[in-house]
């Protein structure tokens, strides 16, 4: 179930930066692939911000907004930013299963519910075989390791100095999570998964590896198509999230040449880490004008626990840092 109606997306700089990177990717591909002729399918939440941006920046006018909750769908009908957006009441998985795509599609599986994460990944992976060539698929997953469950305090050992007591049979928190992760992901568990991959800063990468395996497993069945990963991110504004974007290509078809020079061209095995701090306008302008050095302020800029250095993260992504401002209407 989408929880899009309860989260303030417009105040999340890293989510906004991630979306901006995706739009930048589409813009880069658009010249070669004529994306304006594609269909765009996604979850819009009550405000349909993604739809507004994709329509205005890429020019796509065949758009399907899927929403499970009928109350939200009715609200979408009111809020929709362009008349070319059709609001459909359904789950995204069911919509994909029941639709015969007759032209390339840009499909954003914007999942937030962590309980069904394995079937979400499998749905994304199987779609690579169902959509026409040149389709672009994107998945967003909840990458918070706490979603694997919470052990009771007496079920785990919590060594004060972080060194595991070998005589204590209880697992550490991350070992506990790893067992849960293995059970949840089954055959999609990376064979080399370790307890340290279950930490807040690393769990997103473990999930992205599973996404990669799921897609590759599907591709073993076919010889006439291949995929190329285009963009992978791991970001947090509180809740860590992981995303991966791919393009489906006929075998032998090269990746559009415009991609090779794109600085954000990444694969799920090494995602971009977006962990920029929430900044006041004054702080942002000061950092931008100074070229975002290693240390600028006398105070600490907090991270969401993904990046080691918030300055470095800002330096890498400052161009897509959102500009939020209060407007009185």
């Amino acid at each position: 179930m989408s929880q899009a109606n309860s989260l303030p997306y417009h105040l999340r700089p890293n989510k906004a930066a991630d979306r901006e990177l995706f739009l930048s990717l589409l813009a880069r591909l658009s010249g070669t692939l004529h994306l304006e002729t594609f269909r765009y399918v996604g979850l819009g939440g009550p405000f349909m911000e993604d739809f507004r941006m994709v329509h205005s920046r890429i020019g796509i006018s065949d758009m399907i907004c899927v929403e499970e909750d009928d109350a939200v769908r009715i609200r979408q009908e009111f809020n929709r930013p362009a008349p070319c957006i059709a609001c459909v009441q359904n789950t995204l998985e069911e919509y994909v299963r029941s639709t015969d795509f007759d032209k390339p599609v840009i499909l954003w599986f914007d999942f937030t519910d962590p309980k069904s994460i394995t079937s979400q990944i499998e749905c994304f992976a199987s779609t690579t075989l169902e959509v026409p060539d040149f389709s672009i698929l994107r998945i967003t997953l909840n990458a918070n390791p706490e979603t694997l469950g919470r052990p009771k305090p007496d079920e785990i050992q919590t060594p004060p100095d972080g060194t595991k007591d070998p005589d204590d049979m209880k697992p550490t928190l991350n070992e506990w999570r790893l067992e849960r992760f293995r059970k949840r992901m089954g055959g999609l568990t990376p064979n080399d998964s370790k307890a340290e991959d279950m930490a807040r800063s690393t769990f997103g990468r473990a999930l992205l590896k599973s996404v990669q395996f799921a897609v590759d497993r599907e591709l073993l069945q076919v010889r006439n198509r291949r995929i190329e990963w285009l963009l992978a991110t791991h970001y947090a504004d509180g809740q860590p999230m992981a995303t991966a974007t791919l393009i489906v290509l006929p075998t032998g078809e090269p990746l559009p040449i415009t991609m090779s020079s794109w600085p954000f061209y990444t694969k799920p095995s090494s995602p971009l880490i977006l962990d920029m701090p929430i900044l006041s306008s004054r702080e942002r302008l000061a950092l931008e004008s100074s070229g975002a050095p290693d240390k600028f302020f006398d105070f600490t800029l907090p991270t969401a626990g993904l990046a080691e250095d918030s300055y470095a993260s800002f330096r890498q992504f400052y161009r897509v840092y959102p500009h939020f401002a209060k407007v009185d209407l």
Binding site: K115, S119, P171, W176, R182
Partner: peptide, 28 residues
Amino acid sequence: RSVQLGGDDSDETDDEDSVEMDRERSSA
């Protein structure tokens, strides 16, 4: 070792009968 992974029981009460939860409990 699964029996040692008790966890917070509120994990269990949600979507108890979903396919996902069934799968989760079937370790390799």
